[in-house]
Design a protein around this nucleic acid. Structure first.
Lengths: 368, 368
DNA sequence: AGCAGACATGAATCACCGT
DNA sequence: TACGGTGATTCATGTCTGC
């Protein structure tokens, strides 16, 4: 495959190179790429199957490309593609990598060892993650992105003002709340099943490209998949180079990017809806000392009392559970809003615990 | 400093060892600690010619313990204290480490290389982070915690149900929204300045200890600082061992923990799981007369019926076996919880046999 | 057509005990 | 120690089905 090495002629732009990641990377001239976005295999190390409580099977990522013999093998693989990315980056270029706890610590260490300079780690906080079906761990509700410049002294691109406007005039934080790629955005095969096991949401790539590239920049994605990076790049007036090993994915990506139109600005706005904001659970009031474990809660008539426990459950004579469950139980009702049903005694007054939650909300807002 | 090595005598509990982290760790007997919580130095200032702007010098973390020559030096230090923590942990023990992008990737990689098994990475999402004054990066609004068991097959402690109640009856996620340690909670020196540069909020430790330890467990903090871990441990009825190099911090920590009130036992009682309850075989229900041999059990739709036999098995037309096996069989499923699948008729009502089991458990508890 | 309820699904390192 | 039996466990969202 021939190409010009003169930097002002860039025939590799807006194309997908089909083949092995490192082999194809070697075809790209040194110092020609502004930004790398990489979504490498996570090395999940799954064993056995997993079923939901309703006995249905979880469709796990068990593809061959995610199988590595050992951490050492994964590290070798990582060093290989990162070294090539480093070569093709411009001196002031930067790189993003996304991963989970299975692989991101290894990627981060290797980046640092190679001389990349970490600028931020960014958390993608998922609004709708898969639950932990067996109740053995915390819901794995986020993934981690690392943003690093090629070198410690690089004059990297950061569109601070754009991101601030984007975020309702507040500085953009290192935690981003976004939903999974589902519904119409998720590419399907002829059977109606997901085409790619790990397609990323375009909103994520929009934010990455909007914050750390300029219009006309060239973005390289060495694990292109179904081309989310390419789609976002085209919509935002950036150029892309994709590398993808699987023919099927590359073809789907081409068709997808072909259909992309520049998105209207309002589609890019950050979700600031109440829905996306984290709730304040009753447990937080105990953590913060607004209610103390051992305190008593009362119903409006003060005939019923319940004792608060360290985990945010409350206990009556013969039962314990959440403020909502026990509130319903003592009323013989199906459901109950524990926040308005239960009260604490403040001197002679009876104060609903919802007042304490509002107080905590105010404290958190004032501190921010 | 003398101590007993007999594991049933643990004079090191609820004490602060003042001295170098690794030196003091070596004094702790192997296999005696349930949980490690570590907040190691992490504001790496690699002295490779990088200078810091003057205006940030006053309040920044520039203590001598926080300086490392290189990533290699930091890795050596990390491997040293982690190896000792591994030694003192019980086989089913676990460890938490908190850090930022400066160090957490190195810590995570080393943990994996040493055989620790990562269970979750947890994001502490700060409600009130320090803004990025220069506007060159995203506001660094989170820190990362890694929760790992000593070994891949360890039977680690996770109080799933307690955390679920805590979070208003929803699974606790891997992102925790908490504010910084400020106000009255923040320890001050005689001049009214903060005593320690990185004092963690007690709410964070409350959640860590509540989720991954049991009352009476021993928690080791090798970078004790002003003793947040000790304060939370005492309040929650856990034992602590602290290691701290600076006399001033250790002294402040002691006074602080002394002032902490232990929660009453009834407040420490936390929501428990069915898993923890004593196992009752179906045959016991027959022995006790709650179900009689010859009775019929029904699936939720009452379309399927099975006859109870004297030995605790149940029989349908063409098969017999346990409540679980036959439940799975009639559904064509791989597995089935017979306790919730099968019901008995009580008048017009259909009652799951799990209700009868609960009744029996209550009877047994009353008798004991 | 419109609504209510059932159904499907997402990068997942997802038991434990007794023999 | 390997194996088999018991039995515990899910949230948000989009699509489909049936009335």
């Amino acid at each position: 495959m021939g190409y010009q090495t003169r930097p002002d002629i860039r025939p590799l732009q807006d194309r997908i190179l089909v083949g092995d990641c490192i082999t194809e990377l070697k075809k790209i001239p040194a110092g020609t790429v502004d930004l790398v976005f990489a979504d490498p295999p996570y090395n999940l190390q799954l064993s056995g199957g997993l079923t939901r409580p309703d006995q249905s099977k979880v469709d796990a990522v068990d593809d061959h490309w995610d199988q590595f013999e050992s951490f050492e093998a994964y590290d070798r693989f990582t060093k290989g593609w990162l070294a090539e990315c480093r070569r093709v980056l411009k001196p002031d270029g930067a790189l993003w990598v996304i991963g989970s706890y299975h692989n991101i610590f290894r990627v981060g260490s290797i980046l640092q060892d190679m001389g990349f300079w970490i600028l931020n780690d960014v958390v993608w906080r998922k609004t709708n993650p898969m639950p932990n079906f067996r109740g053995r761990r915390f819901t794995n509700a986020h993934e981690t992105l690392i943003w690093a410049s090629r070198d410690a002294d690089a004059r990297y691109t950061f569109n601070y003002e754009a991101m601030k406007v984007f975020n309702d005039d507040l500085q953009m934080r290192s935690d981003w709340t976004l939903s999974l790629c589902t519904g119409a955005e998720r590419l399907k095969n002829a059977d109606g099943d997901k085409l790619h096991p790990t397609q990323k949401p375009e909103a994520l790539l929009h934010r990455v490209l909007l914050s750390t590239t300029k219009p006309g920049d060239t973005v390289l994605d060495p694990f292109f998949g179904t081309g989310t990076t390419g789609a976002a790049a085209k919509a935002l007036g950036r150029h892309f180079i994709g590398i993808e090993r699987e023919d099927d994915y590359a073809e789907a990506a081409l068709a997808r990017i072909d259909a992309v139109k520049r998105l209207p600005p309002e589609a890019l706005q950050v979700t600031t809806s109440k829905r996306a904001e984290p709730r304040i659970p009753f447990g937080s009031l105990i953590e913060r000392g607004l209610v103390k474990a051992g305190d008593m809660l009362f119903d409006p008539s003060t005939r019923i009392a319940a004792r608060v426990r360290a985990d945010g459950s409350i206990a009556i004579k013969d039962a314990s559970g959440s403020i909502h469950k026990i509130g319903a139980h003592v009323q013989g009702a199906e459901a109950c809003n524990g926040w308005t049903f239960w009260h604490v005694k403040k001197g002679a007054n009876l104060v609903p615990i919802d007042m304490l939650r509002q107080q905590l909300r105010a404290e958190m807002a004032a501190a921010a």
